[in-house]
Amino acid sequence: MPEGSAVVGLTFDAKFAWPVYDWMGVAKAAFESTNRYCARDLGPKGIRCNLVAAGPIRTTAAKSIPGFEAFEKVWDDRAPLGWNVSDPVPAAKACVALMSDWFPATTGEIVHVDGGVHAMGQ
């Protein structure tokens, strides 16, 4: 990848042990750590590495997580900005922005696109 390139991945905020997320939460925690190491190792080559922590989105992958509906039922109520599990556009726009040249000095970051749930207490 040439200098100025960007790598963007999708995660689901692994700093919490979410109900029903089980093994996927462990995998996402490892993914978030990997992102930090990629940022460290690829940064000197001018390559940025970031993640988008999206709220629950009704996707094919989500269907494979038993009990995923539990997130769908409460997320919109907890999100100050609201949340539509059927709308992937906010997460997609964040990915496009991070891949663009609008974030030339951002790497190793996790951008939350979850309606604000990450900032709310239990």
Rank of each mutant, 00 (worst) to 15 (best):
F12P: 09
F12V: 00
D13G: 10
D13I: 01
A14S: 11
A14I: 11
A14L: 04
K15F: 07
F16K: 13
F16S: 06
F16N: 10
A17C: 05
A17W: 03
A17I: 12
W18G: 07
W18Y: 05
V20E: 13
Y21C: 01
D22M: 05
D22P: 00
W23G: 02
M24Y: 11
V26G: 07
A27F: 02
K28C: 00
K28N: 04
E32P: 03
E32T: 08
E32S: 07
S33Y: 03
T34G: 06
N35A: 12
R36C: 00
R36F: 01
Y37L: 10
Y37G: 05
R40E: 12
R40L: 15
L42H: 06
P44C: 12
K45L: 15
K45C: 07
L51Y: 11
L51V: 14
V52A: 11
V52F: 10
A54P: 03
R58W: 10
T60N: 11
A61D: 12
A61Y: 12
A62T: 15
K63M: 09
K63R: 13
S64D: 13
I65V: 15
I65M: 09
P66G: 05
P66F: 09
G67N: 02
E69G: 13
E69H: 10
F71A: 05
W75K: 04
D76M: 01
D77C: 06
D77Q: 13
W83H: 12
V85N: 00
V89L: 12
A91V: 15
A91H: 03
K93P: 00
K93V: 11
V96M: 03
V96R: 01
A97I: 14
